[in-house]
């Protein structure tokens, strides 16, 4: 067989064995690695580039968390002005409507983002690149926080924009800036709390289902136990250990409200201190688990 020459039937086509190409271009180092892990984790959590069944939970949670905001904005826009003041549509109340969505989402997202890597051996592959354990965990925490911001920040921002367009928003630039700051601060509190708590629980097991159940049980059981004890006459200070309610109680304080029931007995400073200490504890659990984790096997 002779190879067709230029101008032959093949039009001069040749098969080229390119061999191996070296790479002398840009290398993005640790920063590039963190961004790559962050992006991949966010995509995975949201079910992007994955089959439809992985998109169900993120979509459901998005609907659950945005629906009240859409209804409120619609109601405010449509109802006569005289009714508006009686509507229970404050920014501080909003998390009350979507706590279930937040806990459901975090119990789905964090195990997916963290446990999967240990189970599939990806952790070893990641840590054999420029990342170290700390930066790996930072990238993962940032991914959880990014995804969680969809539900902790998105709806309240929508509320602010909707109310402003319907002329019931903040009066003046200063009020608008203060409201925006409160919305962002509230989202940050809820976000940091649930990100660190869920990472700590997820670090304790390689199995996603156990981690999901663990996150839900941790917040619900601690809340139920604390509430039962306080109702039976024990100190209201115990509410500082309500892992479910504490961040949402703090959000009320950010809006200058004291809340209702026994929580009013607690000072904002003690709540902030307790929340900080508990977040530090969650981070310590995570760091302890990952410090000595064997990754080359």
């Amino acid at each position: 067989m002779t190879a067709p020459g230029p101008g032959g039937d093949s039009g001069g086509a040749r098969i080229l064995d390119q061999g191996y190409r070296g790479y002398d271009g840009e290398r993005r180092g640790v920063g590039g690695a963190v961004r790559a892990v962050h992006r991949a984790a966010v995509q995975r959590a949201l079910g992007l580039k994955r089959s439809a069944r992985y998109k169900v939970v993120p979509l459901l949670v998005a609907v659950l968390s945005f629906l009240p905001a859409i209804v409120f904005v619609g109601a405010v826009a449509l109802l006569p002005t005289s009714f508006r003041d009686e509507l229970p549509f404050g920014y501080s109340d909003y998390y009350g409507y979507i706590t279930a969505a937040i806990v459901l989402f975090v119990s789905f997202v964090t195990p997916e983002v963290l446990c999967t890597d240990r189970r599939t051996g990806m952790l070893g592959l990641y840590l054999s690149g420029p990342l170290d354990r700390l930066r790996y965990l930072l990238a993962k925490a940032a991914a959880v926080a990014t995804v969680l911001a969809v539900v902790t920040l998105g709806p309240t921002l929508l509320l602010l924009i909707g109310f402003t367009l319907a002329d019931t928003g903040p009066a003046g630039a200063l009020d608008a800036a203060r409201t925006l700051a409160r919305i962002v601060a509230s989202a940050a509190v809820v976000n940091i709390w649930y990100t660190t708590l869920s990472l700590a629980v997820s670090s304790l097991t390689d199995r996603r289902a156990f981690a999901s159940a663990g996150i839900i049980l941790t917040v619900l059981v601690s809340s139920a136990v604390v509430n039962a004890l306080v109702e039976n006459g024990l100190s209201a200070q115990l509410r500082l250990l309500d892992l479910f309610g504490l961040p949402f109680d703090l959000v009320r304080r950010i809006y200058g409200e004291r809340g209702s029931g026994s929580i009013t007995e607690l000072s904002t400073a003690s709540m902030a201190l307790a929340a900080t200490a508990l977040v530090a504890l969650f981070i310590a659990v995570l760091a302890w688990r990952y410090r000595r984790l064997e990754v080359t096997k």
Partner: peptide, 10 residues
């Protein structure tokens, strides 16, 4: 591709 990005490639 993802692991190449993690190793710094654009």
């Amino acid at each position: 591709r993802h692991l190449a990005e993690v190793h710094g490639l654009p």
